[in-house]
Design a protein around this nucleic acid. Structure first.
Ligand code: MN
Ligand code: MN
Ligand code: ZN
Ligand code: ZN
Lengths: 127, 127
DNA sequence: ATTTATAACGCAACAATGTTGCGTTTAATT
DNA sequence: AATTAAACGCAACATTGTTGCGTTATAAAT
């Protein structure tokens, strides 16, 4: 079995994400982490944190990928990040609306593994 | 006022999208359009078609942007593409589920302009 | 049918983002 | 302290999207 190690890069990046009010892109994380590690390492750490289910991904309508920490209880065996993300077109901040969980009725025989709900528009600060 | 013109590139690309059962990426459209125009032109045509509201965009969780034609009546003055898209992780096809419209309750003072709902998992064909 | 204005185009050059291979480092176990 | 492989840095590459500019061709006016 492959084990996972705690490195300074991983710890630093996770702190950055946890301390952020909004979801962050790879580039933003790189800017905030004062050369703690290589650009490539950030990609690899982010993948690992997503795989470990400590953070989750969001995608903007322009293809920008952002990362945010998971605020759910970690004892849940199965959990999905089926909350809505809001991407403000003016201040460009992406926020997790963790309390907003959409409901929908899928046709039969679809097996859902991941969800991505993103709304674009103006946030309360910019409205 | 700026007018819009019908070119062979635009017509061809729109036909490709309309004839497709699934949403297509820029790269896929380029492969299907046998050198009808330059790579850059495809980007510009897609932007134009989205702006004219003839097609709409979807984004995968990996940041891949796909395009699909609008099947709604075009007389609607205001309309949103608030349906769910399904992205199969095995066959990699992205399908519009135009009948599946999620409901959700936003906090006050959010102004929504665009939506992007994408589910990933296994489609009926791959299940 | 010709002329005219400009939307749209091709091309080249660039920027941004993500990926891969490989030799080296380092965290965690023995 | 020795061991093992997860994680790293670096360089090189691939993919995707953008911009500027001179040229082409659409659609309207003459
Ligand atoms: Mn989670
Ligand atoms: Mn539409
Ligand atoms: Zn805002
Ligand atoms: Zn499938």
């Amino acid at each position: 079995m492959k084990t996972t190690r705690n490195t300074t890069a991983k710890t630093t990046i996770l702190e950055i994400i946890k301390n952020s009010e909004v979801a962050l892109s790879h580039t933003e994380i790189q800017a905030l982490s004062q050369n703690v590690c290589d650009r490539v390492t950030i990609y690899r750490v982010l993948d690992r944190l997503v795989a470990e289910d400590v953070i989750h991904k969001t995608v903007n309508l322009d293809g920008t990928i952002k990362y945010a920490s998971c605020h759910h209880l970690h004892d849940d065996v199965i959990h999905t990040h089926n909350h809505i993300h809001f991407s403000c077109e003016k201040c460009h901040l992406v926020t997790c609306l963790e309390n907003v969980e959409p409901t929908f009725k899928l046709p039969p025989n679809y097996s859902v593994r991941e969800v991505n709900f993103t709304l674009s528009g103006l946030c309360p600060n910019c409205l």
